[in-house]
Design a protein around this nucleic acid. Sequence first.
DNA 1: ACAAATTTAGACAGCCTTGTCCAATTCGTC
DNA 2: GACGAATTGGACAAGGCTGTCTAAATTTGT
Lengths: 227, 227
Amino acid sequence: MKHGVSPDTFPPRSHEAKRVSVVDAAASVFCREGYAGANIDLISAEAGVSRQTVYNHHGDKENLFVAVVRDLTERCNAGIFATIASFPDQPTDLEADLIAFAVRMNRNCICNRDGRFLRKLIQAEGERYPELFAEWREQGPGRTWSALAARFARLAFAGHLSIGDPDVAARQFLALVNAELQITFMLGGTPTEEEVLRSATNGVRTFLSAFARKKLPAGKQAALVHA
Amino acid sequence: MKHGVSPDTFPPRSHEAKRVSVVDAAASVFCREGYAGANIDLISAEAGVSRQTVYNHHGDKENLFVAVVRDLTERCNAGIFATIASFPDQPTDLEADLIAFAVRMNRNCICNRDGRFLRKLIQAEGERYPELFAEWREQGPGRTWSALAARFARLAFAGHLSIGDPDVAARQFLALVNAELQITFMLGGTPTEEEVLRSATNGVRTFLSAFARKKLPAGKQAALVHA
DNA sequence: ACAAATTTAGACAGCCTTGTCCAATTCGTC
DNA sequence: GACGAATTGGACAAGGCTGTCTAAATTTGT
């Protein structure tokens, strides 16, 4: 009874298959136990591989950790940009299209295994590896936000939205769409499909209430804060 | 050169003063190093106390950890409810009052030492202590949100806001007001006063754009999702 | 100033973990 | 089927950490 690992026997796998198997198991164990609490025996057991193989592939624990984070970062970024590519640039039903986009974003990038693991590792060990996570920060959130901001700017330009600062709008969009999932994330859980949909629906509706093109009641909200 | 500890000598302190000194140091070390990575020698050194004293007061490491979490939970909850008590029930300038409230909330509950530490411990070790964190969850976010929701409902009832579901509005308010601080939180940092103000300002403006009482352009947004 | 309680430093056993080494076995490939 | 590379399991030393114990020093209450 390890944890929730597959059966007790593993089919034979290639050299490269073992490498990814080790990295996957390591990601899981590092997340569950923390860097210091993760031990190589557990990782190798969970990967269905001998301890020596772990050392053969990755040298030492710190090296393995770095490999895990780079791997997760890469996969997460790929998922994020693939999803952003599906942004509704020419919406037919703006609300429905944005909700569907938000659900895709959540399911493919934020709630999935890689997203949850990467977030937890960053929060837990980010301060210990400044250069590693600075790298992530530039390639991940930095590009994500500006890519998303560009899409919202285009929607605004096309007359679908009324936006002051697209960067602010992009961050607020993500914050709103995840507003109801925070505690679940805190405890490392995975929200149900229904929770994701509800949070996205509520978030997008509020977002559109604020940013849908409309006559403003007073001269209010002329421009949002920039500096 | 330990970390950022006071001078190398400590003035004499009472029995009780040592207990809190130990808990404080333990909170800091648990956050920095994780539960498994935290060692009692480091905690006692940081508390300016001998290792044996730590054991005298708290028995063992796990006990100490629980004491730390309970302590942080208690202080955070106190801060949160004190701050919610200052909610602008009869606003003169709704936007300014809500911004000021959001800044207080951030500064006194979310960005301060206790808030950051508690969040990190929950994220890192929450799954390992289900009952402990279930307790926190009920007393903390559970009550926080419904208390805040009640305040927003009152504002809506008084005609200052147009809100569908006060619980959703309360969560979205917090999400919006923190939207720009997420990465800083991720890496365990403390946002500057200026960042807090900017995030609160942008968040409240968007919140009010969505929920300020106004004529709706179309028959849209009749009711927000509940279930 | 005295007695009790607390704190301290240090030593200590027991345990766990990392990382290395090695001989035997299995795997991929020709 | 045979060869070289990869994998395995097991043993191993070195080091770290927890938690206990002690005797001496210090603090606290009276």
